Amino acid sequence: MIAYCEVSAFTQTPGQGNRAGVVLEAGELTDAEMQALAAFLEAPETVFVTRMGGGLVRVRYFTPTQEIEFCGHATVALGLRLAQGGHWQGEPLELETLVGRVPLTLETEAGVPTRVWMEQRGLETRPVARELRRELAEALGLDERMIHRGLPLAAASSGLWSVFVPLLDTVILDGLDPDLPRIHALSDALGVTSVYAYAPMGVNRFAARDFAPAVGIPEDPVTGSAAGALLALLAEGGRLPVRGDRASGVVYQGHALGTPGEVEVEVTLAGQTVRDIRVGGCAALDREGYWDRKK
């Protein structure tokens, strides 16, 4: 029997935010068993700890249909479970993932773990051909005129690649009618995991929706890795207020699915170049259980 838990990330309320499966003792599981357990849990992503010790935790991430390189909300969920289970008291800790090592920082209040911050790798960007603007808009169920001209439309990654599509306002964002097969095809053509639509709510606050049918997720409730890349993309383009060498903001996601969550992002700049990206959030335990690997 393999112990697992289900955790709501980027929220303090069970059942809200984004659900992640967490398996702390997966060292003896085969690839096929990890995939089977991820499919059994049906969470958008499940994180498996395959080795732990010496300030390093080796992990793998699976959607219900395939392995992926990294997942932000599952990382936050794992960090809180490690802290709540007594495996982590706030000392330096790194996750070893398929995208490299990801340092984690623990935030506490009165000695109680409350928030996990993860450092994402540096920002990478790719332009999106102008003629694809209409295709992306139509795939989201929109007219091209609803795309915001003052915010960046680009492919970007700080862990996983997404194409970021800015919209004029949150009313348009909430009313999207995505054509998932078309989004899947566009994602494959652009070499990205998802199409991430976003809209401004203030100078450093944004609402978002993330469609990832290419990896078996029609709509991801709250996406930490993409939120980090978005705020870094905006900071690098001069679209966020900067104090000293830092910009920060919040991304609100999940409202369209009835599971709202919040992702906090801090970006450190060296001139106009992004140097560091930190993504933080809370998490709440939903339930615990056991999976029979022999079935």
Rank of each mutant, 00 (worst) to 15 (best):
Y196S: 00
V102S: 06
A197I: 05
L186S: 09
P221Y: 12
V128D: 01
D174T: 05
T268I: 08
Q89H: 13
M1R: 09
A270C: 10
E25S: 13
A156Y: 11
G289D: 03
A232V: 08
A283Y: 14
D188R: 15
E91W: 08
P178M: 07
T259R: 15
Y290A: 02
V222F: 05
R182N: 02
T193H: 07
G249T: 08
D31H: 14
E266S: 01
D188H: 12
W161V: 13
T46I: 07
L180H: 11
G216T: 04
V76A: 04
G100F: 04
S162G: 12
G53P: 14
G271H: 11
T170G: 12
A74M: 07
E262Y: 00
E45H: 09
A155I: 02
A235F: 13
A156L: 11
G150F: 02
D188A: 15
V47H: 03
T46S: 15
G261I: 02
M118K: 02
L168S: 12
L95C: 12
G238H: 09
A20G: 04
E135N: 05
L240Q: 04
I172T: 15
R293N: 07
A212V: 01
R149D: 13
P178T: 05
R19A: 13
V274S: 07
D292I: 08
A137E: 03
L186F: 04
T223K: 06
W161S: 09
T75Q: 13
A26D: 02
Q35P: 04
E45D: 14
E94N: 11
A43I: 01
G216V: 01
A129R: 14
M52E: 15
A39H: 12
M201K: 14
